[in-house]
Design a binder for these strands. Sequence first.
DNA 1: AGTGTATTGCTAGATATGAGCATAAGTAAA
DNA 2: TTTACTTATGCTCATATCTAGCAATACACT
Lengths: 306, 306
Amino acid sequence: MMCSVDDERVRTELVAVITAVVDGVPRVLTADDGPRLPSGPLRSDHRSLQGGLRAWVEQQTGHRLGYVEQLYTFADPGRASAGGRRVISVSYLGLTRVGSSGPAWAGWYDFFPWEDRRPEPDLPDPVAQLGERLLQWTGRGDDDETARRRLRAEVTFGLHGRPWRPELALQRYELLYEAGLVPESPFGAADVRLAPGATMAHDHRRILATGVARLRAMIQYRPVVFELMPAEFTLGQLQDVVEALAGQHVHKQNFRRLVQQQDLVEETGHTHAGTGGRPAMLFRFRREVLDERQVGGTKLPVQRVR
Amino acid sequence: MMCSVDDERVRTELVAVITAVVDGVPRVLTADDGPRLPSGPLRSDHRSLQGGLRAWVEQQTGHRLGYVEQLYTFADPGRASAGGRRVISVSYLGLTRVGSSGPAWAGWYDFFPWEDRRPEPDLPDPVAQLGERLLQWTGRGDDDETARRRLRAEVTFGLHGRPWRPELALQRYELLYEAGLVPESPFGAADVRLAPGATMAHDHRRILATGVARLRAMIQYRPVVFELMPAEFTLGQLQDVVEALAGQHVHKQNFRRLVQQQDLVEETGHTHAGTGGRPAMLFRFRREVLDERQVGGTKLPVQRVR
DNA sequence: AGTGTATTGCTAGATATGAGCATAAGTAAA
DNA sequence: TTTACTTATGCTCATATCTAGCAATACACT
């Protein structure tokens, strides 16, 4: 079972989903045209995949990435480059802090407006509209395939009284893709109104959705939010960041209790005033917990909607 | 920032961690010499990475893989092949069922004897011995680095009264590697007694540890165990498989309660006798839950050891 | 002083979890 | 035919955790 040399010629790309929260908005680092995610080829002077990506992003942004984690490796035939060479994309999720949002930092919800479930007062709910179109696509039939599709739509989009689950962001995007409701989908029909939101070059919107979903799942059981926070912060600010990421409000008192009783933070002794209310105590992340817990055991409550 | 063509020449390998439980022992599919994990190059007629791996394994084993999931992508310089070409390994975890264990199916715990915590009556506890040698390696000092190392050893190996956590299998292997207690480590000293267990070719033991850790983590919140079960099974058999994977006993009554109240299974109406006790009811997996839950929300209890 | 805003404390009710006792229904030996 | 032994199954109870409230506190700004 030998393979010809031609089979082995592939190009390896590193793709970065770098996230920061600025002005209460989760943002992703983008490159000029497209827009598209920053990406570049693996080079022989890179000692490892993660090392290559880290060095490369730090050079571009001037920021040290506190947290970098492999996301997924894609190699679908649609990704073949011009010369017929196959492209393998190894994607990474990175978390960082930035002071201000330049033009390179695009908001998550520009690409996925339906993922932010914090109620804007009067605007029509995008999920309700998408839900309608999705259920229309699934069909009303009673056969197995139709029923499964409908169930999938109901679960991922929280229809018919089911709870909205923030961490299903990727499944939602994939369902819209299959239903032809995003412009990059090959299954689109001419007469449907597409889902709102900007697109990205190549399959970068899917990769971003993967990152969003992974991060949302992760903050529920790992103390990674702190990579997005400044050295000192109030519990209110921490909560704002979590809510921005989850696209959902959380119960304030329970949030504080959970954070504190898990010993994730310690007081700095300083307070933060000027918000027009009672000044809040400032905290810092107890980085020791990363060693104490070794990955698991850190839940943040993302309110269960009944 | 152009790159020479040379930088882009890489070889892509697909590596499979295929797991099945036979005779109450979790096993992994291995290839002849080494032993090593089955692996082969990505070919241009493979429509996707997962598709390539799936087709390739099915051809080798004659079994359809019920569940295949990407594990991790490795590309360390140590993996460069003869011609100086870089090797990128995309590893997958696959779950399947087999009737009998041929020579190709090696037991997990042949490679990681310390990962099975189900008490063998008289034998000396390998973890106690490893713990000793690890703490010796970390040193007794009080400086930051030493303290962190010691904490890491205590947490990952459950020393000094800390709980043993099955899903830390990878961290344990990596710690042994750093401490020079496995033969494939470059940090080994001449005078230490190595950890027990067989090795594998290349870095395949690390990849296997990754698979073990991932599967152990996953069975706690996703109904994947059922991919390893026959069409009909008793709750006792299901528990045996979970215990084999976790390397730990679970509380029988609580296990049953959790499985049943989550509606993961339904009775088939048949019973299974001949075990020398009361015949057990036979169940089948309610595959619909995969659509109903969409990934999350299925916990199996892995007894917390105090 | 009064009002608004944000922080902090506390608690009742629901749900989940850990660990044990008790009973049921078979098989194997006395 | 007992009797012992084995495995399956049902049930309880104390404890922990989570949800969703109300209440009080402390500051800024009129």
